[in-house]
Simulated scan of single mutants.
Amino acid sequence: MNSIRCHLDELPPLTGKQQKDVQHLATLLPGDNLDLSDIPEVTHWSSAICSSIEPQAPSTEASVINPSIIAKFKDRDQQTGGNY
């Protein structure tokens, strides 16, 4: 999978159709109407891991899950004793 990185001030302006689509989506799901009551609020981010999964070179082995993801889970399991 390829990644594209850019800064917000480097993005091209939205086309008229894109602006219309964004306005339409905003009417469908205004933020005040989202029910988040079933999602626990996270207030403690000190143990969060950001950008820790590195891209893997293509492998000849058949695998559905990237080996770096499996390694991260194994590492997290050792750190926490299996308690995520």
Rank of each mutant, 00 (worst) to 15 (best):
residue 13 P to E: 14
residue 49 I to H: 14
residue 41 E to Q: 13
residue 49 I to G: 10
residue 71 A to Q: 08
residue 2 N to I: 14
residue 11 L to M: 07
residue 18 Q to P: 02
residue 17 K to G: 04
residue 35 D to A: 01
residue 17 K to C: 08
residue 11 L to C: 15
residue 59 S to V: 10
residue 82 G to K: 04
residue 80 T to P: 03
residue 20 K to E: 13
residue 64 V to R: 15
residue 66 N to Y: 01
residue 78 Q to V: 04
residue 5 R to Q: 04
residue 52 S to H: 03
residue 14 L to K: 10
residue 65 I to Y: 15
residue 34 L to Q: 02
residue 62 A to C: 05
residue 46 S to Y: 04
residue 58 P to S: 12
residue 16 G to K: 11
residue 16 G to E: 14
residue 76 R to N: 09
residue 41 E to G: 04
residue 21 D to V: 10
residue 72 K to P: 00
residue 3 S to W: 02
residue 4 I to D: 02
residue 44 H to L: 06
residue 36 L to Q: 03
residue 29 L to T: 02
residue 83 N to R: 15
residue 40 P to L: 03
residue 78 Q to C: 00
residue 27 T to R: 15
residue 8 L to Q: 07
residue 33 N to K: 13
residue 20 K to H: 09
residue 31 G to V: 03
residue 36 L to R: 05
residue 57 A to C: 03
residue 65 I to T: 08
residue 33 N to T: 13
residue 32 D to T: 09
residue 47 S to A: 11
residue 29 L to I: 06
residue 11 L to G: 01
residue 11 L to D: 01
residue 80 T to M: 01
residue 69 I to M: 05
residue 8 L to R: 05
residue 68 S to A: 14
residue 68 S to V: 12
residue 79 Q to F: 05
residue 56 Q to E: 12
residue 75 D to T: 09
residue 58 P to Y: 02
residue 32 D to N: 07
residue 65 I to R: 05
residue 31 G to Y: 02
residue 84 Y to Q: 01
residue 29 L to Y: 08
residue 7 H to P: 00
residue 54 E to Q: 09
residue 67 P to E: 13
residue 57 A to K: 15
residue 28 L to W: 10
residue 84 Y to C: 00
residue 2 N to P: 09
residue 37 S to L: 05
residue 32 D to K: 13
residue 22 V to N: 05
residue 32 D to F: 07
residue 62 A to W: 04
residue 63 S to M: 09
residue 36 L to E: 11
residue 65 I to H: 13
residue 70 I to D: 12
residue 47 S to P: 01
residue 63 S to R: 10
residue 84 Y to R: 05
residue 44 H to M: 12
residue 1 M to Y: 03
residue 24 H to M: 08
residue 60 T to A: 10
residue 3 S to M: 15
residue 5 R to G: 02
residue 61 E to C: 12
residue 47 S to E: 14
residue 25 L to P: 00
residue 8 L to W: 03
residue 12 P to A: 08
residue 75 D to E: 14
residue 21 D to K: 06
residue 40 P to T: 12
residue 22 V to H: 12
residue 70 I to E: 13
residue 16 G to H: 10
residue 3 S to E: 12
residue 10 E to W: 00
residue 7 H to A: 15
residue 77 D to G: 01
residue 1 M to Q: 04
residue 24 H to D: 13
residue 82 G to M: 03
residue 5 R to S: 08
residue 54 E to W: 06
residue 64 V to T: 11
residue 61 E to H: 10
residue 74 K to Y: 00
residue 27 T to D: 14
